[in-house]
Nucleic acid binder design. Structure first.
Length: 458
RNA sequence: GUGCUUGUAGUUCAGUUGGUUAGAAUGCCAGAUUGUGGUUCUGGAGGUCGCCGGUUCAAAUCCGGUCAGGCACCCCA
């Protein structure tokens, strides 16, 4: 292999089995979305650059794949501006569109653009690839599919409840047990910042406490200190971080109601979560568990209320995430339209189901019957029988070449085809086929109609 | 953007302190078997050891560079 062709870093090919398994995931997720009354939409792979920039935070902007303009754009740029230190200025001149980074922002843009045609509250789902110029590693790709469900134009917290049910339903339908749905509320984080006199350090605060799972309580304290958070913050967390009680919803409620740490927005956040927890009992969920987790922050900076993240003990990183955004459409000119949604990471779910061997075995062998090819006359005869079999709704094929028997049987074997029909001169004369069950090796002589009946009941 | 690590048949990997013609398993092709696969036996094809340079009588092996993959950080699905 002197010059083996390559594909770009962080992208993958999918063979027949893999593609079939991915379709299974998409179909499972899609059917749950539809069951809850969501409608499909699709948006272009590219958006204009200004639609995407500034929505995902600084880090996010850096990871957006920009698409080069067509034509010789350098002609229009004065020569003295083409310098390395002017890269930021040049980028805007040589690129005015980019590959979408997620499905939520394009959705917000879609809603604003088509507001006149939509019935609100609008419930849509969208299953499409997104691209990020990230360094790939395990569970992280440069091209991956997201499966988004969002409802926009309703402030009701019943939407959040419905999303929890959807998440539970999807993973239960996929046969995955032990998923943990973690929930927090941006208002609680904002309240915490307010109560601890760290309002202007909100993002430093959230980034630091988000690391609790990874670096432990001491690590978080170090991180807080390194990020320059004040004494009040350090003192508060050094006392509370070691006990679950200290950061429970009850404890936070008390905190936000105490005079010297009062926070109205914090109270609101607690209230919102209580609404949800009061209506979802653990036994309401099939295979998932719903937990409050105050360390959950999420980097996408458009979230304003509830935030979700779904994890699984056997997988590093989240497999689903989302939250409420009160004013994402406002940026595009449609204010006061709140939305909430979550996104399933199809590629991570694919990896996880593969690791845990949870794909149904029947996936990937669509052909039920193969006609062996003994020669032109026999093949002509089989072609006519094949039409009848297919018309009866059975997936079948005829081996195209009259090669070696062994090769044809091997083909059926490798493709996991359940039955093989042998039709030679004897069968043509009697009008029957010899049908071989590839699993048991049993063989019987049947008319075409009898064969169709047998295959249908299989 | 930062750090670590690995590149040897199609694939997964061996390859000793540097020493003849670089191996195995599996897969592929053919035969044993002209109408019977998944078992078995026999044979065959398949490699410029990622690439470039250096050290040496001698390099898959040591050194430098480069490219590509993987992992971790950051961030995230």
């Amino acid at each position: 292999m002197a010059t083996a062709p390559r594909i770009p870093k962080g992208t993958r090919d999918f063979g027949p089995l893999q593609a079939a398994r991915r379709t299974y995931i998409f179909d499972t997720i899609r059917s749950v979305f539809q069951q809850y009354g969501f409608l499909p939409i699709e948006t272009p792979a590219m958006e204009t650059l200004d639609t995407l920039l500034g929505k995902y935070g600084e880090e996010g902007d850096r990871l957006i794949f920009k698409v080069l303009n067509s034509g010789n754009y350098f002609d229009k740029i004065p020569e003295d501006q083409i310098r390395g230190d002017n890269f930021a200025g040049l980028a805007g001149k040589i690129s005015d569109k980019a590959l979408r980074y997620d499905l939520t922002v394009p959705f917000a843009r879609f809603v604003v653009k088509h507001q006149g045609e939509l019935a609100f509250p609008f419930k849509r789902y969208q299953i499409q690839p997104v691209w990020r110029a990230d360094r790939p590693q395990k569970g992280r790709y440069r091209e991956f599919y997201q499966c988004d469900v969002d409802m926009i134009g309703s402030n009701s917290l019943r939407n959040e409840i419905e999303l929890v049910e959807i998440i539970d339903q999807v993973f239960s339908n996929l046969g995955l047990e032990g998923t943990r749905i973690q929930i927090n509320n941006r208002k609680i984080l904002a309240g915490l910042a307010e109560a601890l006199d760290a309002k202007d350090q909100f993002s430093n605060l959230t980034v630091a406490i988000d690391k609790l799972d990874k670096v432990g309580p001491d690590g978080v304290l170090k991180e807080l200190e390194a990020r320059g958070l004040g004494q009040k913050v350090l003192h508060f967390f050094s006392e509370r971080l070691n006990s679950e009680e200290g950061m429970s919803l009850d404890a936070l409620e008390t905190l936000f109601n105490t005079a010297e740490t009062a926070s109205e927005i914090g109270q609101k956040g607690v209230e919102e979560l209580r609404f949800i927890f009061n209506r979802i009992a653990p036994e309401d969920l099939k295979t998932s568990r719903l937990d409050f987790n105050f360390t959950l922050a999420r980097g996408l900076n458009y979230y304003t209320g509830a935030i979700f993240e779904v994890i699984h003990p056997d997988f590093k990183g989240s497999i689903c995430g989302g939250g409420r955004y009160d004013d994402l459409t406002g940026i595009f000119g449609l204010p006061n339209t709140s939305g909430v949604g979550v996104s399933f990471g199809a590629d991570r779910i694919y990896d996880l189901l593969g690791d845990k061997n949870l794909f149904p075995e029947t996936i990937g062998s669509p052909t039920q019957l193969l006609f062996i090819n003994f020669g032109e006359a026999e093949a002509d005869y089989c072609s006519r029988e094949l039409k009848k079999v297919r018309a009866a709704g059975i997936a079948a094929e005829l081996f195209p070449d009259s090669g070696k028997m062994k090769k044809q049987m091997n083909y059926a074997n490798n493709k996991n085809i359940a039955y093989v029909a042998l039709v030679g001169s004897n069968e043509m004369e009697s009008g029957k086929v010899s049908l071989k069950n590839m699993q048991t090796g049993e063989q019987q002589s049947l008319s075409t109609d009898e064969m169709i009946n047998l295959l249908k009941n299989n």
